[in-house]
């Protein structure tokens, strides 16, 4: 079984006009950075991989994750985690409930609570379970969003300009945290960004679209 995320001859077009083509394998713990100015369809590529491509786009090619063809799988069965530039924490749920939403089902209530406490502890937010996500700082939100995603035990990770809303000081810190954890879990990572510094920090192959 091939671990990792493979994009095989993926071509996305809109109304017959091709937007982008990608053919690439991302191994466990590796990062592929897709760069390009806004409007070239970077996010469209991610939508294709999560299975949420809008119907006015046409896509060809296949997406394989850990040896499974997920090209036509429903979004919720793909095991692809994603982080956007906004934290997108569910505003109606507490921090703990947001993490519980992500956490794989199963286990007793006590076990689940323990796992959530452990996840919060890992990112220095111990005891934040009952907090309203709207009262958190930008960096705290980003950390909760990361842990929520990791608790769902994804097999691959997509990053959609994930650090562009954070200020410079926070940026490097959150970025290292995300990449460290992806490497520790041996996750293939696909990041789209227009920020050269993010691309350098990722340390992997860089593909530039739209040239």
């Amino acid at each position: 079984m091939d671990k990792g995320l493979s994009l095989r001859h993926v071509t996305i077009s809109k109304g017959g006009a091709p937007l982008l083509s990608v053919h690439h394998d991302i191994g466990p713990g590796e990062v592929l950075t897709v760069m390009g100015p806004s409007g070239v369809g970077k996010s469209t590529l991610l939508a294709f991989i999560t299975g949420t491509l809008a119907p006015d786009f046409q896509a060809m090619g296949e997406v394989w994750l850990d040896g499974h063809d997920i090209t036509h799988a429903p979004p919720h069965q793909r095991r692809v985690g994603i982080l956007f530039q906004d934290d997108l924490l569910f505003p109606h749920l507490s921090v703990g409930a947001n993490l519980a939403f992500g956490l794989q089902s199963g286990g007793t209530t006590t076990e689940r609570k323990a796992k959530i406490a452990e996840a919060l502890d890992e990112v220095g937010l111990s005891g934040f379970e009952t907090r309203d996500p709207a009262t958190l700082s930008g960096g705290q939100k980003a950390r909760v969003a990361l842990m929520r995603m990791l608790l769902s035990e994804p097999c691959g990770l997509l990053l959609d300009e994930p650090f562009s809303r954070l200020d410079a000081a926070l940026r490097a810190q959150v970025r290292d945290m995300v990449f460290d954890r992806a490497r520790a879990r041996e996750l293939p990572v696909l990041m789209v960004t227009h920020d050269a510094e993010d691309a350098r920090a990722a340390g992997g192959v860089i593909v530039t679209l739209g040239d």
């Binding site: 429903p74 979004p75 919720h76 956007f84 109606h92 939403f101 929520r148 769902s152």
Partner: peptide
């Protein structure tokens, strides 16, 4: 709709997204 994408990526079914989010 990115909330829906996130929830689906967290393995919530379409009905789960509707009812829980």
């Amino acid at each position: 709709v990115r909330m829906g994408t996130i929830a689906a990526a967290l393995r919530a079914s379409p009905n789960g997204v509707l009812w829980r989010v």
